[in-house]
Design a binder for these strands. Structure first.
Length: 754
DNA sequence: CATTCGCGGGG
DNA sequence: GTGTACGCGAATG
């Protein structure tokens, strides 16, 4: 039989690969492919003979033959033994045994996730079109009928069911929350007070709608594990999968806290489904950034199946793209040693220390400033300067290409990293342009996909310097930042030659100034920099005015990352202000945004000062609402990321106290999870009274009016400090205004304080 | 005052 | 299957 359709999902199951094909007839076809995994071994002939004997005796091996493949580091063709392994169940045990041979034999392609390795080998694309010849549910032949690089593709009409917790997701089922299921306009609320209802209702709904995608909020952390628990307790089977055979679900109950991007993150244990996708939008970084469209685009490009792509980090995606390319080019993939994290040596710190170049801007308010940014600077540098672990410090060339460090870069071979990045850079640019050109839903689709790729590009750089990355090398990382600093300085010099003053610069952005600066001359400058540096320089915008904030620690200095300004098109750009911070309560963010909205009507520096009374007015209004108890508790919720176990805190800060309150009632908060709380009485001697964790909040819990007022005052101070209004002035002014029985016109109040 | 702790950026 | 760090600012004791 022959079928054409979309490859919906792939996973190893028992000893075969299971494929779900969404046929053109609308049916979902389950097929098995008895695919065998190949690994490669290199070493002396007699050692390899020994290995063969060992594997045969243990029954691991289906077959073996000699073949020639390319060594990743040298690019040389080498003789290796191709080993066809028996079945998947044996593999984990096998890899432990192989470690014993490692002093004599080098193994390749041995630690690639099986579904990915299957897709690389067959050239198949998750969610892509395919053609398959099959018999009795088994694949005879399968071929891709699409390229992962297509920009326009049609997806099968996926039926989506949404399941979420209404009420507080931190609390156990039925304690102040319910389960809401929605599908195709149908909505059902399940009351978990009656536990047996949960599996019964879910089963009924899944059978009735047979969704392809189950999109949840807190599905991984709460809904699925709780439902599974109830199902076991009540002895009512819960049928979530389409797979009808025994499903091997490894209940990774603890979840993982891990260190990434300089902070602790938490991933709850994952509950993927077999035969349909479960995506927990609250447990998926990429979903939050780029939606299902972005995830699907990445799954297609990287050949990481959709469910895994949704849960994984961008680093895994980029690695898979590199693995796919290496695989298809016949390059042996080195076994990644899972070295435990080591302490950083002084040398490491020295190297890492010299990252991007950062200047110090002159504080205060400015006019005639343009901001120009290098587009995708680091990935472009990797692509154009051929920076890759195997090309930096290659053995064959001697050219001292890398600025400062003087490392060689290979001129004979293009590296794996640049080969992978180039098409991604092109594709992202194309999607970005299309998202600008096309409006509506399609434009949004392009936008999400280009943002997904943006992430892949950003992280490809970090990955180069990551000690445990398969294709990482610290010298390559170093080379990228060295070129980056060179290009930033080059841009500065070209600008100065054209009469611009450099006001500020961070890594890949420059703020430049000139009296009466025009868009035309800045664009001309960008053109020249693009030509000279080999990296696209874009005009981010021209500011009507912009402010660089002083340091709060040393008020005479400014800080690089706290600034805001108004572009000519009326948009505000701001960094480091309260409203940008995730640890600020909504009330403060909104108040500051309202103040900025007022300031966005100031056309130039002279227009800024007359807007100040109106900003005062917004501030006073917010403070009054706080005083009069007109602020709803959710507006006051602060949530911060827990960086360690609640009991490990040395200092009882508000976050630790809130986490401890939750622990006390049996709600586990893991490092990397956010703890939501309201400040009740920050200065209370009784620590218990300082905060209240959100799920434990009752109507009698008030809030710390003084503390929240202070946050508002600081938010206002950030916007007004260039004109000398610091928190003391603002605070006095607020007190003064509040004391007046009937405030006269704001103008007179304003005069009084000056 | 020293120390501890959390956040940012990209779009 | 784990993207780097460092500087800033606030809070604690």
């Amino acid at each position: 039989m022959e079928t054409e359709g979309w490859l919906f999902d792939v996973y190893p199951w028992q000893s075969t690969m299971v494929l779900w094909i969404y046929g053109d007839d609308g049916g979902m076809l389950r097929l098995e492919d008895p695919y065998r995994h190949h690994i490669y071994a290199r070493g002396r002939r007699e050692d390899l003979e020994g290995l063969l004997g060992f594997l045969r005796k243990r029954g691991f091996l289906l077959g073996s033959r000699w073949t020639r493949k390319q060594d990743f580091w040298s690019g040389q063709e080498v003789d290796v033994l191709d080993l066809e392994m028996r079945d998947y169940g044996h593999l984990p045990g096998l890899f432990r045994l192989l470690a014993g041979f490692e002093d004599r034999i080098t193994f390749y392609n041995s630690d690639i996730p099986l579904a990915q390795s299957y897709l690389y080998e067959k050239g198949l694309v998750p969610t892509g079109r395919c053609w398959v010849e099959h018999e009795d549910g088994r694949v005879l032949r399968i071929e891709a009928r699409c390229s992962p690089w297509e920009i326009e593709y049609i997806l099968p009409p996926l039926r989506t069911m949404e399941i979420r917790i209404e009420g507080n997701p931190l609390l156990p089922f039925g304690r102040g929350n319910t389960l809401v299921v929605e599908c195709e306009g149908y909505r059902l609320e399940i009351d978990p007070q009656l536990p047996s209802e949960v599996p019964l209702q879910i089963n009924t709904l899944l059978e009735r709608f047979d969704p392809d995608v189950i999109l949840t909020e807190h599905g991984d952390s709460h809904i699925v594990p709780s439902s599974v628990r109830i199902s076991r307790r009540e002895k009512i089977p819960l049928i979530l999968d389409r797979e009808t055979g025994p499903v091997h679900r490894i209940p990774d109950l603890r979840g993982r806290s891990y260190f990434s991007y300089g902070r602790i993150l938490y991933h709850s244990p994952a509950y993927p489904l077999f035969g349909r996708w479960h995506i927990d939008r609250t447990n998926s970084f990429l979903f939050g950034e780029s939606g299902l469209e972005g995830i699907i685009d990445l799954a297609r490009l990287s050949k990481v199946p959709v469910q895994r792509a949704a849960r994984t980090s961008p680093g895994t995606i980029i690695t898979s793209m590199q693995l796919d390319r290496a695989f298809s080019e016949g390059i042996l993939i080195p076994w990644r040693k899972g070295e435990p994290e080591k302490f950083k040596t002084a040398w490491d710190l020295l190297v890492v220390d010299k990252g991007g170049l950062v200047f110090q801007p002159p504080q205060g308010i400015h006019e005639d400033i343009a901001e120009i940014d290098f587009a995708s600077m680091y990935p472009t540098i990797m692509a154009v300067h051929n920076i890759s672990p195997e090309t930096v410090l290659c053995a064959c060339c001697s050219n001292s290409r890398v600025p400062e460090a003087g490392y060689n870069i290979c001129e004979r071979r293009e590296g794996l990293v640049p080969r992978t990045l180039k098409p991604i850079l092109r594709r992202r640019l194309m999607l970005k342009e299309m998202s600008k050109r096309v409006g509506g839903e399609r434009g949004e689709d392009y936008r999400r996909r280009h943002i997904a790729l943006k992430w892949i590009l950003v992280t490809s750089f970090g990955y180069l310097g990551y000690r445990n990355a398969r294709f990482g090398r610290i010298e390559a990382h170093e080379a990228v930042t060295a070129f980056g600093r060179e290009k930033l300085l080059q841009a500065k010099e070209i600008g100065e030659k054209r009469g611009f003053r450099l006001i500020h610069a961070i890594t890949d952005s420059l703020w430049i100034s000139k009296d009466g600066l025009t868009e035309g001359e800045v664009l001309a400058l960008c053109e020249e920099i693009t030509r000279e540096a080999g990296v696209r320089m874009n005009l981010e915008g021209i500011y009507r005015w912009m402010v660089f904030l002083p340091s709060r620690v040393k008020p005479e200095l400014s800080v690089a990352n706290r600034y805001f300004g108004l572009f000519e098109d009326g948009e505000i750009k701001a960094r480091g202000l309260a409203f940008r911070r995730s640890d600020m309560p909504p009330m403060v963010k909104e108040a500051q945004l309202r103040m900025l909205e007022v300031l966005s009507r100031a056309k130039d520096v002279d227009g800024y000062r007359p807007k100040i009374p109106e900003v005062f007015e917004v501030l006073l209004d917010s403070v009054l609402k706080l005083k009069n108890g007109e602020v709803e508790p959710p507006e006051l919720v602060i949530s911060k990321t827990l960086s360690q176990d609640p009991s490990d805190y040395k200092v009882d800060n508000l976050t630790a106290l809130a986490a401890q309150q939750l622990e006390d009632v049996g709600v586990r908060i893991h490092p990397g999870e956010r703890v939501p709380y309201v400040i009740r009485d920050a200065r209370s001697r009784v620590k218990e009274d300082r905060v209240r964790a959100v799920p434990l909040m009752g109507p009698e819990d008030g809030y710390d009016e003084e503390k929240y007022t202070e946050l508002l005052l600081k938010a206002a101070e950030e916007l007004l400090i260039p004109f000398g209004y610091d928190i003391n002035v603002l605070s006095r002014w607020v007190d003064f205004s509040l004391k007046r029985e009937k405030a006269e016109s704001l103008d007179s109040v304003y005069k009084n304080i000056l």
